[in-house]
Design a protein around this nucleic acid. Structure first.
Length: 384
DNA sequence: TCTGGGGTCCTAGGACCC
DNA sequence: TCTGGGGTCCTAGGACCC
């Protein structure tokens, strides 16, 4: 019988801050500063009582909760705490998947002989994390990752919820359509507009009629989900992407600032792609105008993208294809897509020798920077 | 409510090839 | 010549998640 644990750290960033600062405990802690164009990243359960939640504009949070403790995010700290938690969790299953900084999935199938029944085991792991790390977590236990994920949400915070085999559909009925993972605002309102408000109502419709109404993918997804079946046909190891973006305090209108930003983003992306040992076939640019409308452009050149200079020059031409000097830009983003392992032999052109040399230089600079020696790129170039 | 940043996946249209 | 169908890749936009 398959058995999965889904672990979700409670209000993770806020909990870490409360661990570090005893004076924050029991108080509304909000990660994010109450300034224009900023949003709440996470908040403590004390803050949620005021109606504050993730993704809310931080100035709105300030109005709802004037006495809230607003803290800028400290990702380094959270990453290191996350790493410590994950190391402990890994002791309990070799088939371990870290879903995000604060979530993990453990395949516990067949571990009964070693660790005993699931519920006491989960309690034991929770206790360990509380004692050794100093934060609480919620665990969902079920026969599939999909149900386990939603079960972890059921009794938050410091929760434990087990859905016994055979009770998956009952569980879905109990949580309702809105709490089904993967159904967001848009899908829910589409279903409402078709008179569907509960899993029971959706179950009365055939697979055929669901796919006709909601499309093949979404139709199949809800058909399975309302029956308590795992709709995720997730296969691993597909090409992924690396991206970065920034929202300006005020709309930016001049090319010099945008170019400066693209240059530094190009180097950041190059560094991250070197760390991950990947290269990319596609470069994409994202622009958000002052009125919040957002567009993207991407291009897949017929030569290999080898260094930061290339990323930079591609990004500039993408920018000039969509933007004219003087138009206000709220957000600028740059990404690498269609990545592939840099171990693979490069489809090379005859003329890219110089690009390879620049790549080697990028590697050297990145390696030095990673060791904390901040070099002025210009001085390196002079020597080269 | 005046709306971050990092991702994944899906859709639909068009180019191009056989 | 006014015209089929399938496959694959690329592009742009959007939904969704943490």
């Amino acid at each position: 019988m398959p058995l999965f644990f889904h672990v979700d750290l409670d209000a993770f960033f806020a909990s870490v801050e409360q661990r570090e600062h005893p004076e924050y405990r029991g108080k509304p802690v909000i990660i994010g500063l109450p300034v224009s164009r900023s949003v709440v990243s996470t908040c403590s359960y004390e803050a949620r009582k005021y109606g504050v939640h993730s993704a809310m504009p931080a100035v709105t949070a300030k109005k709802l909760c004037p006495n809230g403790i607003f803290v800028p995010p400290n990702m380094r700290l959270y990453s290191s705490v996350s790493h410590s938690v994950m190391s402990i969790l890994k002791e309990y299953s070799p088939v371990f998947h870290q879903v995000s900084i604060d979530e993990a999935r453990l395949d516990m199938t067949g571990t009964g002989k070693l660790f005993g029944p699931p519920k006491p085991l989960a309690l034991k792991i929770k206790e360990r994390i509380k004692n050794e790390i100093g934060i609480t977590m919620s665990v969902g236990i079920a026969s599939s990752p999909f149900i386990a994920k939603m079960a972890s949400d059921y009794n938050k915070p410091d929760g434990l919820c087990m859905v016994s085999p055979g009770f998956e559909q009952k569980f879905i009925d109990a949580i309702g359509l809105e709490k089904i993972w993967g159904l967001g605002k848009s899908s829910i309102s589409a279903m409402h507009s078709h008179g569907l408000f509960t899993p029971v109502q959706v179950r009365e419709l055939s697979l055929n009629s669901l796919t006709k109404t909601f499309g093949k993918s979404m139709g199949t997804y809800v058909y399975k989900a309302v029956r308590g079946e795992d709709p995720n046909t997730y296969e691993e190891a597909r090409s992924h992407s690396i991206s970065t973006e920034t929202t300006f305090f005020q709309d930016v209108k001049d090319s010099e600032s945008l170019h400066r930003c693209l240059l530094s983003m190009s180097h950041e992306l190059m560094g991250r792609s070197l760390d991950e040992g990947v290269m990319a076939k596609t470069v994409g640019l994202k622009l958000r105008w002052g009125d919040f409308t957002t567009i993207t452009v991407q291009t897949t050149p017929d030569y290999p993208i080898l260094n930061a200079d290339q990323i930079y020059s591609i990004s500039k031409s993408l920018l000039s294809s969509k933007w004219k000097e003087g138009e206000g830009i709220r957000l600028l983003g740059l990404g690498l897509y269609q990545t592939y392992s840099s171990d693979k032999p490069i489809q090379d052109s005859l003329f890219s020798e110089g690009e390879h040399k620049k790549r080697e230089l990028d590697k050297v600079v990145h390696a030095l920077e990673s060791r904390g020696l901040k070099l002025q790129k210009a001085s390196v170039l002079e020597e080269g």
